[in-house]
C-alpha cells in the first residue's frame, strides 16, 4: 500500500507554480526599484535641513501606515487602467497594480534605512553604510511574500496558482497538503533569502571589523 503525500496534480501545475513564483519576484523587484526612486530623495530630505525634515516627517509616517492590501484595491479602482502617455497607449496590468501597492512600504523602508546609511556615509564609515544592502535584500524578500496579495485581484502569482488548484480538490486533507507544498516552496525561498542576507551581513561585518562607526551602528 502506498500513501500519497500529495494529491494528484495536473502536469501543468508545477510549471504554473514556478511561473507564478517568478511573478512574485518580478513584482517585488519592481516595487523595490520604485521604492528606491521615491525613498532615496526622502532619505536625502531627512538630512537636508529643517524643510527636508518637515517633508520627510509629513510623508514617511503616512507611507508607513498605508496598508498594502487597501492601497492595492485603491489603485485598482481609482487609478485609470489605461491612459495615453506622449501619444502612446499605456495599459496597467494587475501585477503592476500589486507592485505599485507595495511602493509605500518599500519607499518608507528605503527612506528610513537610507537616511541611516547616509548618516554613516557622511561620518566616513562607508562600510557601515553598505549595511543598507542586506537590509534592502530583507525588504525584497518581505515583498516577495507580500506580493501574494495579488491573489485577491486575480494576478496569477504563486499563491493564486495554489488556490486555483485547491478549489478543484474536494477533500480538506488534499487541500491542506497542497497548502503545505505552497508553504514549502515559499519557505525555502524565504529561508534561502534570509541565509543570503545573513551571509551578506557577516561578510560586510568581517570587512568592517574594527570600524568604530560600524560598531556603533550595530549597537
Amino acid at each position: 500500500m502506498t500513501i500519497s503525500l500529495l494529491p494528484s496534480l495536473p502536469d501543468s501545475f508545477l510549471p504554473q507554480l514556478m511561473a507564478g513564483v517568478a511573478l512574485n519576484f518580478e513584482i517585488a523587484l519592481t516595487s523595490l526599484l520604485m521604492g528606491l526612486v521615491v525613498g532615496v530623495p526622502l532619505a536625502f530630505a531627512k538630512l537636508a535641513g529643517k524643510a527636508g525634515r518637515l517633508v520627510y516627517g509629513a510623508t514617511v509616517p503616512l507611507l508607513r501606515a498605508a496598508p498594502t492590501f487597501v492601497v492595492m484595491f485603491f489603485l485598482l479602482n481609482v487609478m485609470p487602467q489605461a491612459f495615453s502617455l506622449f501619444g502612446h497607449n499605456v495599459a496597467i496590468a494587475p501585477s503592476a497594480v500589486v507592485a505599485l501597492s507595495l511602493v509605500p512600504y518599500s519607499a518608507s523602508y528605503v527612506s528610513e534605512n537610507g537616511a541611516e546609511a547616509l548618516g554613516h556615509w557622511r561620518e566616513g564609515s562607508r562600510l557601515a553604510a553598505l549595511l543598507l544592502l542586506p537590509n534592502l535584500a530583507r525588504a525584497f524578500f518581505v515583498m516577495v511574500m507580500s506580493s501574494s496579495a495579488g491573489a485577491a485581484i486575480g494576478v496569477t502569482e504563486g499563491i493564486t496558482v495554489i488556490l486555483r488548484q485547491a478549489e478543484k480538490l474536494p477533500a480538506l486533507g488534499d487541500r491542506l497538503k497542497l497548502f503545505a507544498l505552497g508553504i514549502l516552496v515559499f519557505g525555502c525561498l524565504m529561508q534561502t533569502g534570509f541565509v543570503g542576507v545573513m551571509w551578506l551581513r557577516r561578510y560586510l561585518s568581517a570587512k568592517t571589523a574594527g570600524s568604530p562607526a560600524l560598531a556603533a551602528a550595530q549597537e
Binding site: M145, S148, A151, A152, L163, I183, L184, Q191
Partner: peptide, 22 residues
C-alpha cells in the same frame, strides 16, 4: 514558528478559513 514565517499571510488566512469552514 518557522512554518508560520514561511507562509505568505494570504495563504495562512486561507488555511485558517478552510479549517474553520470544514
Amino acid at each position: 514558528i518557522m512554518l508560520l514565517q514561511s507562509s505568505p499571510v494570504v495563504l495562512t488566512l486561507v488555511i485558517a478559513a478552510a479549517i474553520a469552514n470544514a
